[in-house]
Write a protein that binds this DNA or RNA. Structure first.
Lengths: 131, 131
DNA sequence: AATACCCATCGTAGATTTGCGATAAGCAAT
DNA sequence: ATTGCTTATCGCAAATCTACGATGGGTATT
């Protein structure tokens, strides 16, 4: 059901133990929050997921930079932004998990590019959402 | 400089003490975080701000609902979603602060609609972002 | 003025995010 | 095997987010 989107979203992931914001909740410990899962429509979660990834100016800026340069290395970004290398790396990870970018080993560096397939999906989702 | 966008974004707000995610930081207390403000390009923050507001499935669903019904009351949403009234209200507040919706007093209720002006701005920003 | 209705706001708890420095992990060359 | 370079991950602290119940505020109506 979420096949086309989610499966390709994860195409760059190494394993599945990555960050997954599960709305509703999968943990077993007692909570204040309602236990009942909220079921959202078809593309609602996918769109929210993309939006969440875009919800930080640094990540927007990274994507813009990637789009301009077509590709770049982590180190390039560290020089562009006044943020620690670990912080940049974390933002890259989130963008990767959201499926918006992909990394390619270019030893000793890692080259990041926009993930064009998912980019198109995201674009379509936003376009459709805004009518 | 951010005139056209930001000023209209705030058009539905009552006062300015609302939530403002200031990237970089305005508080004076000692922090681990870098004190230097990060300056982002023109529309980067505006886009991130819209994206952040869209970054939760419930808010996407609320907006879809508003778009279908063209308008609706808080109470309607409370019936649609398995969430507390206060939670719905909070999501509405965030959407309002982001400028995506606006409220109109319709005693004893409050009628929420899409803020068409800012909707167009957001749409344009995302469109331009995705090329 | 008091009531009733609807909704916002407050206060709180737990989860998540963001940031940093420090450390580990991966790969190529020596 | 060791070194060097690059990047990911860990562990922590502070801030923010999400959710709830409880309370407060505003606007008719009685």
């Amino acid at each position: 059901m979420n096949g086309a989107v989610s499966s390709s979203l994860m195409s760059t992931k190494i394993n599945d133990s990555e960050y997954h914001p599960t709305y509703g909740n999968s943990s077993q410990k007692q909570m204040k929050r309602s236990l009942e899962q909220i079921e959202y429509k078809e593309n609602t979660e996918a769109l929210a997921r993309f939006a969440k990834a875009l919800g930080h100016p640094t990540r927007i800026a990274i994507l813009k930079h990637l789009d301009n340069q077509s590709c770049c290395f982590t180190g390039d970004l560290v020089e562009v932004f006044p943020l620690a290398q670990s912080t940049i790396s974390q933002h890259l990870k989130e963008l990767k998990n959201a499926g918006l970018i992909q990394g390619e080993l270019k030893p000793p560096k890692i080259k990041y590019c926009i993930n064009q397939d998912n980019w198109k999906i995201a674009k379509a989702l936003f376009q459709q959402f805004f009518d």
